[in-house]
């Protein structure tokens, strides 16, 4: 058995520091296994959020050697183990304790986005017909596991703290899934431009790089949404139209 050292940020409400733990490691272990081992053997009260341990629930997000990743999908053999592996909580969200952050902002943001509104059913039995190629794109967006790693890495939130004016890449993906849903009849373009702050995104693609579900957030979701905003919202003729219709 070999061992490895982990430097884990511990503390509460933003106050804390890194503690070093050395533990034995075995083949195939992921970072979350090491954290659990340390928790069971050396630090019973260490706070860490996880559920599925298979990259499907998006609970175990953290920053490993400075990179936002899922702890359960980061294998130790992909990390340099000569020096301590640093594990710290996501920095764009308030800390609760140790590796656990307060992500409740995300849940509040989602609630403010207009919900799905389908067109009337296509068939008398109340069902709809859609072709697979028309839902492929939406299905890509719906792979999102709400790990919020993209929110963590986006500089608009991380450095500029625009949480009140900018919904972040996760929710652009969410809005895109609704807007491109073949059955949806709602229009969210105006709010995207105003309250959701899509203009702040300067297409750095950092979000796309960290997405564990490999959703092409920027190219497939954000850019098409930006185009819609320009077309529909800033297009003078459509604006006139809106004014007449009283919207």
């Amino acid at each position: 058995m070999t061992s490895a050292t982990f430097s884990i940020w511990r503390g509460a409400a933003g106050e804390g520091k890194f503690f070093k733990y050395t533990t034995e490691i075995s083949e195939g272990m992921v970072v979350l296994d090491a954290v659990h081992k340390i928790q069971a053997e050396q630090a019973n009260d260490m706070a860490v959020r996880w559920n599925c341990k298979a990259g499907k629930c998006g609970s175990c997000s953290a920053e490993i050697n400075g990179i936002p990743r899922l702890m359960c999908m980061t294998r130790l053999n992909q990390l340099p183990l000569e020096r301590p592996v640093t594990i710290e909580p996501m920095r764009s969200f308030p800390s609760i304790r140790d590796l656990v952050t307060d992500v409740s902002w995300n849940f509040r943001v989602k609630k403010q986005i207009k919900k799905f509104k389908p067109r009337p059913p296509d068939v008398a039995d109340g069902s709809w017909r859609m072709q697979q190629e028309d839902v492929d794109r939406v299905q890509e967006f719906r792979k999102c596991i709400e790990c919020f790693l993209c929110q963590d890495v986006c500089h608009v939130l991380r450095e500029h703290h625009k949480h009140e004016e900018f919904i972040g890449p996760r929710f652009f993906v969410y809005v895109a899934a609704l807007e491109m849903h073949p059955l949806d009849t709602e229009n969210r373009v105006e709010e995207l431009a105003k309250a959701k702050g899509i203009g702040y995104c300067n297409i750095t693609k950092c979000c796309t790089k960290v997405c564990p579900e490999s959703i092409t957030i920027t190219d497939n979701a954000i850019i098409p949404l930006k185009e819609r905003v320009v077309d529909e919202f800033y297009d003078p003729i459509k604006r006139l139209f809106r004014a007449i219709r009283g919207q």
Binding site: P118, D125, S127, W128, R129, M130, Q132, L178, H181
Partner: peptide, 19 residues
């Protein structure tokens, strides 16, 4: 299942466009 579709679920489709 149909209810889920009415709430926004996107199931894989048949060639006829059904679930």
């Amino acid at each position: 299942v149909r209810e889920l579709e009415a709430w926004g679920a996107v199931f894989d489709r048949t060639r006829e466009g059904d679930i």
